[in-house]
Structure formats: C-alpha cells, structure tokens
C-alpha cells in the first residue's frame, strides 16, 4: 500500500506500482474523452516546488492536479537560492502551514525530497532529485510499455545514454526489475555508474548487444555540460558510436517501441528517423504522464490520514 509519499521506486513494491498503473487506465480514459474537470481532488491543494528548470514535468503535474479539481500553486526557486535562500526544511514548514496536501519537488541534489518528507505533513512526490530518482517518469514509461505489450514481465528494455547522471534510468531499473523485465544498459564508460550491475542491470559491451531482441529501446538525454566536463569528446562522436539510427534498430525486436523521456537532442541519442518512426512512443509518453500523475495524486490524497474523500 502506497505510503504518505512517493520518493522513489527503490522503496516501492510491485503492488504499489501496479496499483498506480491500474488507476491510470481510468484516468487516461477520462482524459481522452476530454472530461477534464473531475471532482476527485476538489478542495485539495497541490504545490509544485521546483529548484530546477522543467517544462514538461511541472506542466504535467499541474495539469494532472487541475484536471482532478485541485488547486495548484507553482513555486520556482532558482538553483542559487538552494544555497543562499531559505532552507529546504523551512520552506517545507511554510508550505505545511498553508495546508498543502501534496508537494511535488524537483531538486538538483539527491535525497532532497527525503529531507523534505521527513519534515512536512503534506505528501511529498519526488519530481526528480539530482542523480537519484524520477519515479513518475518511470511510471509513465511502464504505463506506455504495458499499453503496448499488455505486461511488463519478460520484456527486454534497452536503455542507452547518460546512465551515470540519469535519475530516469535508475527509477526505470528499480521498477522494471520488480515487475520482471530485463534491463540492459549501454553508454560510454565515462557515463556508466559503478555498481549498476549489482542493482540488477545488465551492462552491454556493444550497441548491438544492447539492442539485440529489445522490446523497448529507451534513449536518455545527453547533456552538453557532460561534454564540457570532458566525459565524451563531441556530440558527433557520441552520435556515431553510441547513438541509435534506424539501421541499429534492426537489431531490436521487429515489434519494438522507441521511448525517450525528453527533451530529445535530434541526431544525438536518436536520429530523427527513429524519433519520428511509427513505433516511437515519445509523444504518447507525454499523455500517459498526465494520466499516471493523476492516478498517483489521487491515490496519495485518498490514502492520507483523515483525508478520505468520497469518490
């Protein structure tokens, strides 16, 4: 049973995950029928507290809350205010005093949502913390996979890109292994974190090995700052040796889908042919993100102590 917060999938059970995905099915139905004024969270408040720039995640959470009838507040704290402004704990006390029900936090440092959750009564949702986790992105990925294949169990999911700095890769790994999928990763050695195999991933020795027979091909965004930090020499070299083109996709299962958490660098992680192909789910993922976040917000608020609302 889902607790007060969703801080990551490392601590979530397969049942929690399945529960959220099941609930999201109904939410997507309502969404696609354009029934976007629902009463589930009427009288509730969801605050997004973002210490990092984000368009899609923040927008997705805000719309999910609004579609369910919640009031929303958005707080942007520049990353410099992390060091100079009010402490995270004090910000939490303030938001709590204003009777927020849910705080969605994105933060450049791992563990920040955990620190916040320890000090507030509101439910805390991790909207991405440093290199740690991004659980709702992984949940929408699972939803997308399940929608296509019916089940996660037995799938081979290839994840390519900057694994080391990717909270998406880790949340996917934690959840997918719990749901019975095989996760294979591939990246330059400078972008592969230590101990990832002990966490359940298989590390491929080549792009072909990673893609071979994959049901899901997931790319991760390559950030320019990694190149400036010397972790790889150029985007062109990255694309040539680590990127995925239509030709490489031939190694994957013929019925595979292509996914990416966005925003994509066209011609780097994937060529445009791959991004725009029929089996690309990149845009569908965005829609599923709203549905999954609606489901999560609904379940969290429903579970809150004394917070039961008649459906």
């Amino acid at each position: 049973m889902l607790g007060k917060d969703l801080l990551g999938l490392y601590d979530a059970s397969a049942e929690d995950i399945t529960d959220i995905l099941d609930t999201a099915v109904g939410m997507k139905k309502l969404l696609t029928q354009n029934l976007k004024k629902l009463p589930h969270l009427q009288g509730r408040t969801v605050t997004t507290l973002f210490y990092e720039n984000s368009t899609r995640t923040r927008c997705s959470f805000e719309l999910a809350a609004k579609y369910l009838g919640a009031g929303t507040v958005n707080i942007s704290a520049s990353s410099s205010s992390v060091q100079k402004g009010e402490t995270l704990i004090d910000t939490g006390y303030t938001l709590d005093a204003m009777k927020n029900d849910v705080i969605v936090i994105r933060h450049p440092m791992g563990g920040a949502p955990h620190l916040l959750a320890k000090h507030v009564k509101a439910s805390v949702v991790n909207g991405g913390d440093g290199m740690n986790e991004h659980p709702t992105q992984a949940l929408l990925d699972f939803y997308t996979m399940r929608e296509k294949f019916g089940a996660i169990k037995g799938l081979k999911v290839a994840i390519l890109g900057d694994i080391k700095h990717s909270r998406v890769a880790k949340s996917n790994l934690f959840g997918l292994t719990k749901l019975g999928a095989e996760v294979v990763m591939y990246s330059p050695a400078t972008l592969m974190p230590q101990g990832i195999e002990r966490l359940g991933a298989k590390v491929a020795k080549s792009r072909e090995e990673a893609l071979s027979g994959a049901n899901v091909v997931m790319g991760l965004r390559i950030q320019l700052e990694r190149m400036h930090g010397g972790l790889f020499p150029s985007l062109a070299e990255y694309a040539q040796y680590y990127g995925v083109s239509e030709e490489h996709l031939k190694y994957a299962d013929s019925d595979c889908i292509v996914m990416h958490p966005g925003p994509v660098n066209r011609g780097v992680e994937f060529t445009s042919d791959v991004i725009d192909a029929e089996n690309s789910k990149i845009t569908e993922q965005v829609l599923n993100g709203v549905a999954v976040r609606m489901a999560l917000l609904f379940l969290l608020v429903k579970n809150r102590q004394g917070g039961e609302k008649s459906e």
């Binding site: 490392y10 791992g110 563990g111 913390d129 440093g130 290199m131 740690n132 986790e133 909270r167 880790k170 974190p193 230590q194 101990g195 990832i196 002990r198 966490l199």
Partner: peptide
C-alpha cells in the same frame, strides 16, 4: 564513497 551505494543513493562519489 564512489561505488554501489553512491549509485543507489544518486549522490556523487
């Protein structure tokens, strides 16, 4: 420390 737990915690090793 850089290793399994730094990767697990998402903290720089």
């Amino acid at each position: 420390n850089e290793g399994y737990n730094s990767t697990l915690a998402g903290l720089k090793g």
